[in-house]
Each structure stands twice: as structure tokens, then as C-alpha cells.
Design a protein around this nucleic acid. Sequence first.
DNA 1: TTGACTGGTGAACGATCGTTCACTATACTT
DNA 2: AAGTATAGTGAACGATCGTTCACCAGTCAA
Lengths: 203, 203
Amino acid sequence: MDPLTLRQRRCLEAVLAHRRRTGLPPTYRELGRALGIASTQGVRRHLEALERKGYVRMRATARGLELSEEIEGAAGIPILGRIAAGRPVEALENFEGAVDMGALYGTYPEVFAVRVVGDSMTGAGIRDGDLAVVRAAPKVENGAVAAVAIDGEATVKRFYAERGAVTLVAANPRYAPRIIRENEGREVRVLGRVVGLVRRMGT
Amino acid sequence: MDPLTLRQRRCLEAVLAHRRRTGLPPTYRELGRALGIASTQGVRRHLEALERKGYVRMRATARGLELSEEIEGAAGIPILGRIAAGRPVEALENFEGAVDMGALYGTYPEVFAVRVVGDSMTGAGIRDGDLAVVRAAPKVENGAVAAVAIDGEATVKRFYAERGAVTLVAANPRYAPRIIRENEGREVRVLGRVVGLVRRMGT
DNA sequence: TTGACTGGTGAACGATCGTTCACTATACTT
DNA sequence: AAGTATAGTGAACGATCGTTCACCAGTCAA
């Protein structure tokens, strides 16, 4: 992407700041106020430059200012590749993508999350308190890590379906495989395949 | 939250749909078009009802329609508690929060992510290819899982600082602790504490 | 020195947008 | 029978918003 002038960079930062603060893109006049520019035309010039250089897109509607994918990503949680010698990261550089739940996993209702309780899947790097991201599906292939509801209680296990029974295998030697046969009267429902994991640790 | 009438629910769904499609909240007239309502007043009545019941907030500005925290969360990836007997989840019910990166961890530049390479931290449930979410800080307390840059190369390890040396301890018995003394001439820089983890698995 | 680019002011036009007023109709409760 | 909530139409007002036109000034390369 083409480099920005100082003023253009300030303009882009003001757009990001406004979005963080209000949740909406700014109008020309709001941007002008933030930058100390009296004329909407002055603001427009900057935005046209930003559009020409690929940082934003302008839609002819109220608050129609869009950020390009690259900038949109950087505005969230950027994924850093190499860490350079200078500051942790300079603005809008040195990132290889962004942690965006929607882009990463998809959105509800196809995708949802279940909180994992217990240490039965530590062998698969899934720990107590983690959020398992589940792509909803009525069935999953044998051996996949799946979220399964047994009598309404959700658990995350490696899943195997056999003739007349399902087997739930933990990833922890302290837990024996659990076999549930069809004639047991239990309601076993596959919620979907576990496609991701989100953990919060420390303070 | 107060229950919605069918029409009000349709209206709320239209707001969500418009935001998913365009990234912006709809205007009264856009909403009216989506719902087959000719008068802006008809739309406004519904939104006033939604506001009264706590689903949205209305700001007197272009596209000033905000969703309440609860609904905002449900529009992303909801975290499900108990899974009821019916459909996986009914719309806007039965969730205990949302997986939202900003709300979960904070935002750039205080927070960023680093891709983990290797299996040195499997004992802590951190695996090859995971994204470690890092809260930027120049120093971390002893024993914390931290992201550290050694000569510009980022690694995630348990961190200990002692007089004149730092020790990086892996969570995998196959890796010995790594001790780096100050007089070795290596540049060791603490990037911050690892406060989260995001993984993508399966297909 | 003639452009091209950047960074502005000021005014104005038409479209969009939030808001308000007056009026109609149905359904349910009191 | 009166009141309240829902669900609309239609018109209008003023504010906001995107867009455009004319004009000015500094910098820098051709």
C-alpha cells in the first residue's frame, strides 16, 4: 500500500478513533472537527487520497466510510509475525492478519461457543474454562473432536459413532471412554464439530 | 428483558441483517424497505418499543441505532450455557455472553497476538499454530507465561527474571530451561504477558 | 515556469435522515 | 364503553450529510 503523508495518517487515525469511541464511522464534519479542518472539502480531499491509496472506501451514504480489509484487521487484534527491533509494533505495519472471530470461525447461528468444564481434554490442549468454538452440524465424522449434548448437558469429547452406540473418548488417560448405547434411553445429540478454541488466562 | 412481539422481533432481525450485510446500522427508511413499511413513523414505533424493552438505544444522529450489550453479544458468537432440548439455540436466547475479542482481551495496541511455533508449551495447553494473545507490557511477574523476543524472534515461555539473567521455561519435559545472561550480547525484550489463546482446528 | 500534489477556506445544492403531527384500524383489558 | 398497546399511512420541518464549484497557497519535480 502506498505510504501516507503525516496529515493523511492523522486523518486515518481519527477515523479509527471515532469508530472505537462511537462504533460508527465519522461524517465529514465530525472528522473535520477532530482534525481542525473547517471545510468539508478539506476533509474530503484527505479521504480521496486514502481511497486512492487503498486504505478506505467511500460509499455515497450517511457514514458510508469503510476501511479496507487490511486496515479493518489492524484495528482489531493484529497477528504479528516477526517482532522488529523498535517499538512492539508501529501502527498499521508488520501484521499478517487479524484475530477476528467472524472471519476466523464464521458467525452465529452456524457457529457458537461452549464453555469447557473439567480436565478431560487436556491431552488435546483443551483445558478447564476454555471456550470451545463449535460449528453446528447434526453429525460429525468419526474421531473428530465434537460438542455433544447428553440429556441436555454439553460435553466436548472425541466422537465415534458405531452401530447402535456412540463412544466419547477423553484426551486424558484418567478418563475411560464412555459408551452410550441407543437402548439406554439417553438423549444423545451432536451439536457440532469443535473448530476452535478461545482461552482467557492470567488476570 | 421483556418479550417481543413477532413484528418487533422481525424488526430486530432486520437491524442485525443490515449490520451484517453493510457493516452499518440501517436508517429508518432502509428498515422500512426491508420490512415493507412505507412510513418512517411506523418504523420508529417499533424501534421505540425495542428501546423501551432494552434491546436497542437510539442516538439522534445518522445511523444512530445501537444494540444493547446483550443483543450486541448475541450477534457475534454466543457462549451457550445449557443446551436445551429443542433447536441448538433459539434466536437471542440461552446465551451467557459472547466471544468478542475486544471485550475479552482489549484492543490494539495494548493487545496483540503472536502465532506459536513448536510444541514447547503443550504442557500448558498451548500448541503449535495457536495464536497467543499478548497484553503488551515491558515486564511481567516471575512465573507468568510471557511472549519474549530474543534477537527479534518471538517465543512464548514461562518467564523468570533473576539477577543478571532471564530464564525461559518450556511446559514440555523434552525442552530444558533456557538461561540467557545479560553479558551474552543477546537482545531480550519482554513483549508482554500472554492473557489468552485462540486456536483454529479441524477444517 | 509550468504542472501536479498536498492542504486548505467558503458557500451552496440536493438528497438523506431523525423527528413530529394528524389520522386510521385492530386487538385485548378493565 | 373506555383505555391501552400494536401496527400502520401520509405529509411535513429542520438538521445533517455527501457532493460540487470557485478560489488560494505552499512544495517539489520536470
